[in-house]
Nucleic acid binder design. Sequence first.
DNA 1: GGGTAAAATGAATAAATATTCATTAATTTT
DNA 2: AAAATTAATGAATATTTATTCATTTTACCC
Lengths: 191, 191
Amino acid sequence: MARSKDENKEEAIFRATLKVVLERGFSGMKMSEVAREASIATGTLYLYFQDKDDLINRLYLHLKKIQAQRYLEGYAADAPFLPGFRTIWFQVFRQSLHNPEESAFLEQYYRSPFLREEVRSASRSMLQPIYDLLDRGKAELLIKPIHNEVLLAQLIGPIHELVRLHREGDFPLLDEHIESAFQMAWDAVKA
Amino acid sequence: MARSKDENKEEAIFRATLKVVLERGFSGMKMSEVAREASIATGTLYLYFQDKDDLINRLYLHLKKIQAQRYLEGYAADAPFLPGFRTIWFQVFRQSLHNPEESAFLEQYYRSPFLREEVRSASRSMLQPIYDLLDRGKAELLIKPIHNEVLLAQLIGPIHELVRLHREGDFPLLDEHIESAFQMAWDAVKA
DNA sequence: GGGTAAAATGAATAAATATTCATTAATTTT
DNA sequence: AAAATTAATGAATATTTATTCATTTTACCC
């Protein structure tokens, strides 16, 4: 009957939005610039997204889903504890390091006026497998019997901070540093 | 000769700006709203600050200075290592927990288009005493011989993350959790 | 290949918001 | 207490930027 929407367009808009937010900051993101970056007209944005708010929230969910997937890549819930722990730690690290734009966007979203409670809680539940792993570690007496959130903060926090310092404070991030960081993470939580 | 500027006004504007940024996000901060919050006219803002950019950058430096001071409160550079380490850790934690607005502002600034390189490097040097402490710990073989930035990430990261999870994920932060967090921090870095 | 329906365009409009400036108020000096 | 000088005001202006919509282009069907 008529032409159909370009399937790849939404993805292209997402990519463009991410790039612009990274360059200009959350506040400096202009719809017109996103459109230019995606090589489409400003008006076309509004065919795919209701408004700026909708664009940002859907991008957030999109990225969060990808991030959560990557966190769990290569992880088998039935593997022994320590290898599972190590796998996830390195996945989180890799994700943070190799996709700093995505990480930055996700972090910023939390502080932005665009944040919606429903979206936040949805993204929280994506980390369930990690909570499960921690529970198992405690049950097997391999890690300290500490509240999951506290353990999680101990694991995720240094990774984020390390990558941030690396990208901002221009110090090289050698394999040796990464191994040290993992060793510290493990020393921190092990029983 | 003529009336003089109100000494407290700059501070009042800082306070108002912080509040507005926290409520509305970095992007939603309007000069008019800041003025209203500070109980002055919009135009008055421009007597004290060149423009929005100037206001934000000066507020950043102001807060960063306060934060760095608080980090080192009660810390004596000539005390034995572990007590010094503990003192600073708890100061960082307290500062994060009790002044989340300030912390949030400082974090957001890094991702904002307002960031100026000069300002960033100035703020970096404020943490020098902490780097010195880490050097001493390594010299005394008390902590792992790891690059300072990696150690710092390990120490600061979990604190920020923990406070963030606490404020967002509404789980209670008991003394017991805080002690656990410190214990993990120490286990992580100790030789 | 002509008809048609939806997609895409981008200039025009509407809103939002930073900044200015003519005016008023307050304080100090003489 | 009048003059002088600067602070403060806030409505008006300038600017920026989200959103709309009349028009054009494209893809699909007969």
